[in-house]
Amino acid sequence: MQDLSYSALFALFGALLALAAFSEHQGWGSGRAIAISALRAGLQLSLVGFVLEWLFQPGREWASFPYLLWMLGAATSVLWGRFKHKRPPGLKILDFYWVLSALGLSTLALSLAVGRVEHGDWNITPAVLIPFLGIVLGNVLTSLGLAIERFQSDIRANRHLIESRLLQGQAVTEAVGDFRRAALSAGMTPILNALTAAGIVSLPGALTGQLLAGQDPAAAVRVQLLVLFALTGISWAGCAGFLVLLLRKWRVLEREALSAEVYR
């Protein structure tokens, strides 16, 4: 398993295509989606493989900055696209970008700190930073998506209750307090599940990857724990930061009013 050959990979892809054809033929559907998604993933990853190989050459560290910015931009547009039809009022695409960038910066700081402890210097290679930011952004997209969706649907469903609280003189943050808690909890669910199941049910991605690459299990576990802890903190920061930003926008927009447009 140390080095997977191209022929084995193509055989696997062929088997997947056969499965897709079978599914389509038997009337189960989803065959087209399976085939297209697998092909797409193959192309994207191969492309990324070339790009990363080029990037990781010595002397090309500078090029990882535009690449990191591009990753942030792509994550922003994915998140923005998720809310195309039901965007919280007052939010702009740049807000998403800033939230994600702040998280990216925290990731960078964290990677630097870890490097400092492990190797005693502040050097960090693109080969560490890029995958780390990738895993962070991937998780944050899921967390934020869940938190925002939950918050919006709760706010819409509980409009009368929120208005009633405001009419009793509560501040906006108080009036939506329990919905903010529920949204944060929804956003934290995937990573908390991962923490709970880690090692018992599932061997998380980074661990699996390192074991497959022949790493010593104890070292692989340490890296995995680092990743899980970092993801937990960053999920929290992403959801909380986003909710703070959203409420600030609404308060500034309406001077504590939280008027009708918020519920649309």
Partner: peptide, 15 residues
């Protein structure tokens, strides 16, 4: 501040 306004002016909605 709408907050203190809303305590001095009490609104009873239809429902």
């Amino acid at each position: 501040s709408l907050r203190s306004f809303r305590t001095k002016v009490q609104f009873i909605p239809q429902v």
